[in-house]
Simulated scan of single mutants.
Amino acid sequence: MKTMITIASRQVWPQVICVKKIAPQKIYLLHSRNEEESHGPALRLSEFMTKNHLCADVYLHEAPDNDPLCFAKTFEALLSGIKNSDEVTVNITGGNKLMTISMYNQAVKKRMKIVYLERNKELFYFLPPDYLENPKKEDMDTSITNDLDPLELLKCQLGGSYVNNDGECLVLSNEGKMQNLEEINVKLAKSVSFADANIPYENYLVRTDGERVRREEGKTARFGSHMEYIVAFVLLKLGIPRVYRGAMLAPLNLHGAIEGELDLVFNHRGRLWLVDCKDKKKSSEGINEIRRSMIQSIETGGILAKTIYVRTKLIPDNVNAYAKSRGVETVYKNNLFNGLKEILMR
C-alpha cells in the first residue's frame, strides 16, 4: 500500500500538490498542538482530502514541535503501526523547521524515500543511500490540480476567516461554448466600459446550482457586476473549469461581521487566483491599494496565491511598476482575452 507521512502547516497547497502527484492510499498527517499553525490546518486538510477523494484514509497524529528527541519517539511509534510491505514516502514540505529536520533525520535512519516540494514547483526526491549527495529533481506538472474546486481549496486554506457565502459557481452554457471570443473583443474595444459593451453574458453562463444567471439592470445593478461576469466568461473560454463569483468572507469569532467579498476566484496550475475587477472610468489607485491586495491575497489563498487586477482605465505607471515587482498581474478591458491568456500560459 502506498503510504505518505507528512506534517501539516498553514500552507496547504504544497500538501495538496504532493498528494495529487504521489497518490497515496493512506496518509499519516502529523501536527502539533498549535491550533492556528498546525492542528487547525490538519483538520481542514483531512476533511478536504477525504471529501475530494484524494485519499480515503487520513489519520491525524499529534507530534511535538519543539523537542527533537520526543519527536523521534513519536515517529518511531507511528512506524510501528505501518506494515513493512507498505511503500512509504516521507514528505518534509510542511511543518516548522525543527519538525522538518527531525523527520528528515528519522527517515534517513530508516532508509525511507523522502520528498520535498520547492515553492517554484520543483519536486525533490532524496533516496537512499545518497540522500542529500545526489537528490533527484522533477519539474511538477501543476495542472494535475486543475480539477479541484477552488472554493473548497479556499476553505481549506483559510485560518482566521471562513466563507460566509459561497457566491455563484459559474460554468459555460452550451451557447457560451459556441460563442466566438472575437465578437466579445470587438464589443469591448468599442465600449467605454464593460457595462456599456452590451454583451449578453447571461446567455453564455450557467450556475452549477441550476439557477439562471440574471443580468443586473437599473437601480438593482451592483457596480462592476457586468465586468465580473464578462471576465468570468473569458476565463472559462480559456479553459478554466469553473469560476466563483461573489464569495463572502467573514472573520472567525465576530458574529455578523463581513471581512470582504472576492470578485472572482479560480484554481489554475497549483495556485488559487483572486481577480479584482474595477470598471471605473478614472483610475485613482495607489501603491497602498496594491499592497493591501497583496496582503489579502496571501492571507486568503496562501503564499502561492496570485492576484489579477482587471481594469477599464490604465493605472499610473509607478503603481503598475510596483504591482509587477510584487507579482500582481494587471489586465485591461481592451486586451482582456490576450492579457488573461498570456498570464495563464506562464
Rank of each mutant, 00 (worst) to 15 (best):
P251K: 04
Y332W: 03
L336G: 07
V12I: 02
N120G: 14
E299N: 03
N185L: 10
M345F: 10
G224T: 12
E217R: 10
A8N: 03
I315N: 05
G256A: 04
H31E: 02
S173Q: 13
I92W: 01
G40P: 03
F124I: 11
R214I: 07
A77Y: 13
N66G: 03
N105Y: 12
Y125L: 15
L264C: 09
S325G: 08
S32C: 10
A247N: 07
E37G: 12
E299W: 00
L172F: 01
A247E: 02
E183T: 04
I258W: 14
V231G: 13
F337Y: 14
I298D: 11
E289T: 04
G94C: 12
Y59L: 04
N66C: 05
K121M: 08
R119Y: 08
L249F: 08
Y201G: 08
V16Y: 11
G256Q: 08
L340D: 12
E138H: 15
K51T: 05
P41A: 03
M4C: 03
R271D: 10
N120T: 15
N253D: 08
K177C: 15
R291I: 14
V231F: 11
P129G: 15
K155A: 05
W273Q: 01
L123S: 05
Q11T: 13
A321W: 04
L98S: 02
E329R: 05
R207Q: 11
D57Q: 02
T50W: 00
T220Y: 06
L98W: 01
Y322F: 14
Y332Q: 06
I295N: 07
K190R: 11
D57K: 07
N84H: 11
K177M: 15
F266M: 14
E183M: 11
